[in-house]
Amino acid sequence: MKRLLLLPGYLEDGTIFDTLRPLLPPAAVEVIELEPALDQWRPRGAVSAVTLARYLAERHGIGPADVVVGHSMGGWIAAHIKAQTGAAAVLLSSFTDQHKVVARARNPLLLGLYAWSGLGRSRWLRERAKRTYLFEESRELYGQLADSMARHPRRHVHRQLQVLFAPVPPLGVLPELRVHALADNVVRPPDEPFLEIPGDHFAHYYYPALVAAAIREVMS
């Protein structure tokens, strides 16, 4: 039986798949929680999507028979796991081109300052982000993610920012499936073919039946 591995995105955890998981095919479903994995990781070189994918593939014994489903940054990692192991990759509101990520800063020094200063943990900034959020459908979910910023260790935030933006060689393989909503304001739609679904950056959470059907096709 194939394993179905779920990878959350930036500062997310496995609850981001709560509505999707019950609809997935009968398989050994496993969530790869990034916070404990990154906490135990002792990289010998630079932190990037390539080096994290290698670590996770070894840690979880990922191989060609596995299917890795990643949301947002999780999909970026899943694509690199595919490149290294031959596993199938499903990208939900994700990217294989870092320039698709909507970001105000990409400079490593600025990102490090943001992470280690704890700026994202500021109550004022979190409340402002929630007030200015555009999408009513996912407002509650976004608010929970914004509030979770206060609990994440600064090193964890920094490592995830490095995974998002550290330069890496172009990917030489394509994912089996891309799922995206045109209204996504976190990651721009891919240039490659994708399954369009309603919603925003968290479309898979609110339209899980559409996503589960597409994943079943990949697994079959």
Rank of each mutant, 00 (worst) to 15 (best):
P108C: 15
L111T: 13
A46M: 11
L195I: 09
Q162H: 08
T85G: 01
I62V: 09
E140F: 11
L4S: 03
A183P: 15
T85A: 01
V29W: 00
E136I: 09
G74E: 00
E196W: 07
L195P: 11
G143W: 06
M219G: 03
L20F: 06
D191E: 13
P170A: 08
L134E: 11
L34I: 04
L125S: 05
Y114P: 15
R104H: 12
I215N: 01
W41S: 06
Q144M: 15
S122I: 13
A89G: 03
T15Q: 09
R106K: 15
V102W: 06
V69T: 01
K130G: 07
H99R: 15
T15Y: 03
R178Q: 11
A79V: 08
R123W: 11
L113Y: 12
P189A: 13
R106I: 14
L210T: 10
R155Q: 10
G63F: 01
Y205R: 14
R151T: 15
A57T: 05
V102I: 11
D147H: 09
R131A: 07
H180M: 09
I62F: 01
E140Y: 10
A78R: 00
V101R: 14
V211F: 03
A37F: 02
H99P: 04
I32S: 01
Y207F: 13
A27Q: 11
L56Q: 01
L7R: 00
